[in-house]
Design a protein around this nucleic acid. Structure first.
Length: 425
RNA sequence: GGAGAGAUGGCAGAGCGGUCGAAUGCGGCGGUCUCGAAAACCGUUGAUCCCAUUUGGGAUCCGGGGGUUCGAAUCCCCCUCUCUCCGCCA
């Protein structure tokens, strides 16, 4: 949720930035401003009214104590009128506040001024690419075929047990998965991140905190009996650790890393783009989350980008970094880098990480604040990124490293897998 | 699932229906002392919003919602959550 103050101070500037995200905010900003005016006006009247009531009540108390009951009951009559008015005013006040908040929630985060206007993923800017694109023989096969050839992942079995998008990892497939998780966690810990094991089901307040609700509630699995949501990413529980928290300036930067399974309904996706491991309902991910001082959040964003690049390099995967255009950025993000890995048999770039700075957008909603050196409350900045999402990494590893005899495991992973090669036997 | 207890400021913990934003202790901050630190002592210490903006004034907040009352942290009702015991169970 945007800070109302930024809209108030310069609505024109806000509109301009929103346009980068292809969001026409003219109407809603106008609504917000007039609702806020109305809110203030009503509050003034209500406060004055309550102040009068309070004074009267105090006087009545004194009169009773001094035995002047007659005078007291005279004053009592006055209060009843005040009370009636107060009731009306507070109804208006409450409903105005609610409308204002609802309107505010409909406004996406302002993109960083450096973000390009753009409509589709094609408009994203490729800012970096490295690693050799492997040239595979024509006999090379996509990962879903490799997975069954070497009995690593069983999609049909997942289908039977749960449904499409719930693969079963087996044998070396399962061990590869586990190796990657440990590898990612260890690297993050070396980098100063604190490991967190979060809950997989969260309440609605947490969903609102990070912005999955009210917008994208259709993307989350929901358990109505207990009114809980399955997490679509560890970002939700981990960032919500800091909901309603007041930090000290010396607490920055807070660096957390969490492995979790992620659950996404992915309603409406189908086709060859989602084949194999490309898009799943349940997948594993290691997520890094940082809470930053506002002045340093963009340095932190770069630091996270560098860190994730290092992971991909260690896995010897060719990758590129995209700076997302306004149109492709999420509702809550101010700047996002996508990291994509080249999956050589599919001949496709696959997104394996998305690193975002939300500035104070999530913090405002969550009331995540700190006291600055003058003792004033300020909103912190939140950032997160995948480091990394497992399935597409596995897809690229299998495809890029396939040979006639089997699949080679990158050097850095061998001490985690316990094997350096996957072959048919 | 059954029975009971509770929810108050960063934490702990008081609080006859009026002067309670709330005692007290701890913690935090500032000071005295000290070469420095500890101890001791003194002082200070919540959030949000509105008006005025220089000092300032006002409203709201004691889990959430409703009610009684001129007046509620204190009384009544509902909800939620937590804890203890029993049952079940990884």
């Amino acid at each position: 949720m945007l800070v109302l103050q930024t809209i108030r101070e310069n609505p024109e500037a806000a509109l301009k930035l929103l346009a980068i995200k292809n969001f026409d905010g003219k109407e809603i900003i106008q609504t917000i401003l007039s609702l806020d005016d109305k809110r203030k006006e009503t509050q003034k009247m209500l406060d004055d009214n309550l102040a009068q009531s309070n004074t009267l009540a105090r006087e009545i108390g004194i009169l009773y104590k001094t035995g002047k009951a007659a005078e007291a009951s005279l004053l009592k009559e006055k209060t009843s009128q005040l009370k009636e008015l107060a009731k009306e005013l507070s109804t208006i006040f409450e409903s105005t506040k609610k409308e204002l908040e609802e309107a505010l929630l409909k406004v996406p985060n302002l993109p960083h001024p450096s973000i390009h206007h753009g409509k589709t993923p094609e408009d994203n800017e490729i800012i970096h690419q490295e690693g050799l694109i492997p040239h595979l023989p024509i006999t090379a096969i996509p990962h879903w075929d490799l997975a069954s050839k070497y009995d690593l992942i069983d999609f049909a079995l997942g289908n039977k047990i749960s449904g499409a998008g719930f693969p079963v990892y087996k044998g070396k497939g399962a061990r590869l998965q586990r190796a990657l998780i440990n590898f990612f966690l260890d690297r993050a810990i070396d980098e100063g991140y604190k490991e967190i094991q979060p809950p997989y089901l969260v309440n609605a307040a947490s969903g609102y905190g990070t912005g999955q609700l009210p917008d994208k509630d259709g993307q989350m699995y929901y358990a109505p009996l207990d009114d809980l949501y399955l997490i679509p990413t560890a970002e939700v529980p981990v960032t919500n650790i800091y909901r309603d928290v007041i930090l000290k300036e010396s607490d920055f930067p807070l660096k957390n890393v969490a492995y979790s399974s992620c659950f996404r309904r992915e309603a409406g996706s189908y086709g060859k783009d989602v084949r194999g491991l490309n898009r799943l309902h349940q997948f594993d991910k290691v997520e890094i989350v940082q809470i930053s001082h506002p002045e340093r959040s963009y340095e932190v964003l770069e630091e996270m980008r560098t860190y994730v690049s290092g992971l991909l390099r260690a896995l010897e995967l060719p990758f590129r970094i995209l700076k997302l255009c306004g149109g492709d950025m999420s509702f809550t993000s101010a700047m996002t880098y996508d990291m994509e890995v080249y999956s050589a048999a599919q001949k496709r770039w696959l997104e394996v990480s998305s690193i975002s700075n939300f500035e104070s957008y999530q913090a405002n909603r969550m009331k995540l604040r700190y006291k600055d050196e003058t003792g004033k409350m300020q909103l912190a900045h939140t950032l997160n990124g995948s480091a990394l999402a497992l399935p597409r990494i596995v897809a690229a590893l299998l495809e890029n490293n396939q040979t006639d005899k089997g699949i080679k495991i990158p050097e850095a992973l061998v001490r985690y897998t316990g094997f350096g090669f996957i072959s048919e036997t």
